[in-house]
Each structure stands twice: as C-alpha cells, then as structure tokens.
Design a protein around this nucleic acid. Sequence first.
DNA 1: CTGAAAGCGCTAACAG
DNA 2: CTGTTAGCGCTTTCAG
Lengths: 335, 335
Amino acid sequence: MVKITDVAKRAGVSASTVSYALSGKRPISEETRLRVEAAIRELGYRPHAGARALASSKSNVLALVVPLRAGMHVPVVMQFAVSVVTTARKHDHDVLLLTQEEGDEGLRRVADTALVDALIVMDVQLDDPRLPLLRSLERPSVMIGFPSDAAGLTCIDLDFRAAGEVCVDHLARLGHRVVALVGSPPEVYVRRTAFAQRVVQGFTAAADRSGLASTVHPCETGPGAARRVAERLLREQPALTGVVVHNEPVLEPLIDAFEQLGLRVPGDLSVTAICPDELAESVRVPVTSVALPSAEVGERAVELLMRRLGGDDVPEATLLPPRLTERASTAPRDA
Amino acid sequence: MVKITDVAKRAGVSASTVSYALSGKRPISEETRLRVEAAIRELGYRPHAGARALASSKSNVLALVVPLRAGMHVPVVMQFAVSVVTTARKHDHDVLLLTQEEGDEGLRRVADTALVDALIVMDVQLDDPRLPLLRSLERPSVMIGFPSDAAGLTCIDLDFRAAGEVCVDHLARLGHRVVALVGSPPEVYVRRTAFAQRVVQGFTAAADRSGLASTVHPCETGPGAARRVAERLLREQPALTGVVVHNEPVLEPLIDAFEQLGLRVPGDLSVTAICPDELAESVRVPVTSVALPSAEVGERAVELLMRRLGGDDVPEATLLPPRLTERASTAPRDA
DNA sequence: CTGAAAGCGCTAACAG
DNA sequence: CTGTTAGCGCTTTCAG
C-alpha cells in the first residue's frame, strides 16, 4: 500500500506538506503543489480512510436510517436514499445504510464508535422513541418528518398539513362540497407516523374552513381494498364529488374502481393526490397532485447536515411548501 | 470520549488485555474477563472504528452498489439491500451505499482507501465494464448476476435461464402449444443486462425443445404499454394460450388488458411470471410464478463475502434453482 | 494467562 | 511557505 510518506519522499517534501496540499488547509506554493500532485498520480496514492478518521476525528460518512415498515411506499424511500447518497458525494461524504430494525442501539453504535459524523433518520413518528437518543448524541442529525416536539432537533419535510389543505382548497374552488380523504394503511396511523397524521389535520381543517362535508378513510394497499373503499364511499356519501388520495399503491386501483362503479373521473368525481409527480403522471387519467419531492428533501437534508458539521447554525424546522399541479383528474363540479 | 486505556485502568489490566477480551483472540481468565466487561459497561466504552480499522486493516464495512437505471424494479432492489444490511449486521459488518453512477471510480475509491473490506455489485451486464476493475481489486467482491465471462469472479443469482425454462415447461405440461414472453423494457436488453437475457435464452430453448411456437416481446412499464402488447399478441398470435411475464410493473395491467380484450385468465390464457412471490400473490388473479428470492440472494451474497474475508474458498458460481408455485393463473389448455 | 511497546497512516499543532 | 513532532485509539507482536 502506498502511503503519504511515499508520496512525500517522491515529491521531495514532508508528509505534512502532502497532507496540506490535499486538504488545502494551508497555502502551498504552486510549484510544490504540482510536484505533490504528480507524485500522487504516479504512485496512485489514496489516503487511508481509517487513519484519516483517527487523526482528524472525521469519518466523512453519514448514517441513513431507512424504514422497512408496512405502509411505506418503497420507491419513495429509494429515491430519497439515492438523493442522499448523491448529495453526500458532492460534499465528499459517503453513506452508511442502517435499517430501522436496529433501533436505538444501531444509531448509538455508529455514532459512538465514530463510524459516522452525522445521521439522517426517516419515517419519524409524532412521538418517536428515538428522540431522546438523537437529542443526547454528540453528533448532529436531521429527521425527515416532524415529531410532536421537535425542540432541539433539525427537521425537514414537505409541509404535509399544507399539502392536505391545498388539495381541499383546490376541490373547494372547483365547487365541490363533499370530499373524502383516502389515506395510508391503518397501521401507519396506529403508529402515529407524522406525515400521515398531518395530512389528515390539514385535510380536515381546510374542509371545515370552507364548510365542506368531509370524511377520512385509511386504506390498505391492493385493488381489493381500493374497491371496498370506493364502494363504501359511494354508499355512505352519495353526494361525494371530491377525493384526496394519500396512498400511492391505491391511486390507480381506486380510480379504476370508481369508474367500474359508474363514476367518471373527472366528470362525476374529481380526484387529487399527494404522491410523486412521476406516479401522478403515469396513471391512466393523469392526476392533479401535490408533489412528494423526495429528491429535494434528501438533498436538503444532507445540506443541513453539512452546514451543521461545518459549525453553522441551521433552522430547526424546514417545511417545504406544497406545489399542486393540475392534471386531468379534477374538474368543476358542474362540468 | 472513553478509550481503551480508560477501561484498562478501571479494570486494573493492560490495554491489550481489554483488546483481547473483546476480540477473543487469546485466552483470558474468567475473572479478568468479567472485570473488563464490567468496566466496559460502567464506562459505556465503544471502540473507535477508525482506530480499529487502522490498527487491524479491517473496516468491517461492505460496499453495496445499487442500480438506479431505468427498468429495474425498485422494491426488489430495496428488499435486496435490506437483506444485505441485515445479514451483514449478523456478521458484525456495516454497509456503505454506493450508486451505480459513481462507476469504477467509486468502487476504486472505497476499496483503495480501505473504507470497505469487500464489495457487492448488483445489476450485472453480460459485458459489464466493471469486470476488469473487480478482478484487479485487492478486495473480494461478489456480483449479483452472471456476466458472460465470470472467470475469477464470485457470482450469485437466481438461475434465470432455468426460471425461463421452468415457466415454459409448466405451460407445455398443461398442453399449451403457442407461448409468448413479455419481458423487461427494451433498454434492459439494449444494455445486455444479464438476468433479462438469460430468461429469454431459457424461454426460447425450452419452447424449442418442446416444439412450442414462441415469441419474445420486450415491454415498457405502464398500463398503456401493457395494453398495446396484449393487443399485438392477440393480433400476431391468435392461437396464443400461454404467456410468461418477466416485468413486475406490467403483470397486473397485462392481465387486465387481456381480460378487457375478452380473454379469461386462466380460462382462455394461462399466465406465469418471474417475480417476487409477494407480487404474484397480490394480483387479482394470483399468478403462478417462479419466485425472485431477493432476500435469499442478499443473504447468501454476504455470506460468500464473509467466507472469503475469512480466507476460505468459495464456489465462483452460485445459481439458485428456480422454484415455481402454482396459483390461479394457469390451467390446462382444454379446461 | 498477561503486560509492554511498537506501530497502523494520517493530521495538526508548533516551530521556523 | 515548509518541516518536525506529537499524537489519534487500537491491535498485535514480542516477552514473560
């Protein structure tokens, strides 16, 4: 293995000069820098990550904890992870993948052994059990999602409450008076997943504010569940003309079910969703939707961490405003 | 930070004794071991990962390169990644996530800096450009999938060729004489992704062997593409009664399309798939399928690496035999 | 069965 | 602008 002293020897300088040439932490004359760079290239030198971490107390690795639990939409998680890795690389960091299953012990392990410099945690619950630990860790972390009490924590996410509101407001503006929310699977609410809860809050608040009749229906995934929810909605709310869907796998089956029950979208029923744009566009009837900007959230999460690692202060809360794109699935009530 | 010397002091032993108590690399008397363990517990000692890596030349980290390219079924990738992480943890290793985009340079970087001890590479192409690099790296790697020339490399995957054959044989046994393969999106074949190619080979070979008429149809994802392929199949092969689907997102839409075109599954048309069992079971008509055992592949891949890291020899090729589960989507031709 | 001591390869004062 | 010198915290000979 070629080490820094080999490079130093070859370039005719000291090891520290090589180190500084690499890090730029002190000025190096053009001439020596070039000699050092040449030596590095010729020898194919790569600094040893462990040695570097030991000497500098920086591993240049971030931990990413991904959720595995039922009800999470996998492509969204994956897109987020990829965006974290890509952004981390831009800042010369790598990403260690942890699963939710490892729990507190996993977080503590990678933090306390100095395997990672900072952590990103997904799938936050309102009363997330990891909060005390994250607050007590000596390393910065950012949470994707907002717990009930976010004091002392850095959080970022789409403003799901506003997203719910925007969907309802859009329907209200089109003249709809009776609306329903088809939400995530029940277990997601049972464990009080933050983003799902907030959509419900926003949906209900906006409906009340505009004087709309509204109901909320958690929904399992799969066409069967979609069909049952559709039937139930028509039975219980015959006047229903507006639906908000916050459940990716069910979006298309639900629209199919409505049409099979004789309701045209958007003729008889307007549908909006909170989901990735990609999904909304790919449905048979392109769906008016609030985008789920996983890539942007991942990118911003990493950037928040980088600023904290750099010693900067960052806002505790970053709420990305919802962006609604009108597509073919919504229309005025009279139309 | 509490370090090994702190523990040693508290336990009244030397640092090396603590180290050996932790690693078990030399016998320690019951008594001192207990004292050391107590000290560790009381101080909350965690060995510094970087220091350990430097001194032992082992980082206890594996690199996992995940594909991002079009046509890959995301849930399968994710399940695989999770299984790799879970299994790695059982062997006291962590997993560093790399994206395909980083290419050779990324692999070289994490290997040469000793950030990782070994690598797992997914989405192998028949003529994968990373092969020379992987062969030349001083660290072991395992590939998920088989390139054309796998000499000197450790590879593991479902036996996709046999999977294609098993599907055809099953249809042949049921009396079907005209079969079609609805495959992955065209780009997957264009870049010569190994597993997709092998399914085609197996499918065609088995059909020829049994004297079946057969055709192959790459297929984009999305219901529109499914519909078009269905129409085309019926037009070009009016006698078609057996279909093999190797394209997860299209499975359900394709069955829908056939039924809308007036063909009952399995009454008029038998359908088999190569896909995760979970998907096959969740379709409206549960589909007879060859399972895609991502979790098992991930687990075995890690175990192969662990054995290689331990200095053991492992087989270069591990082909998991296909396992076909009969469900409701296939029936005898006459039925 | 245990201790002492020599590094692992790099960074970051300190000194000039 | 550059070199010298201590470590960073742990593992692993070498000695006993």
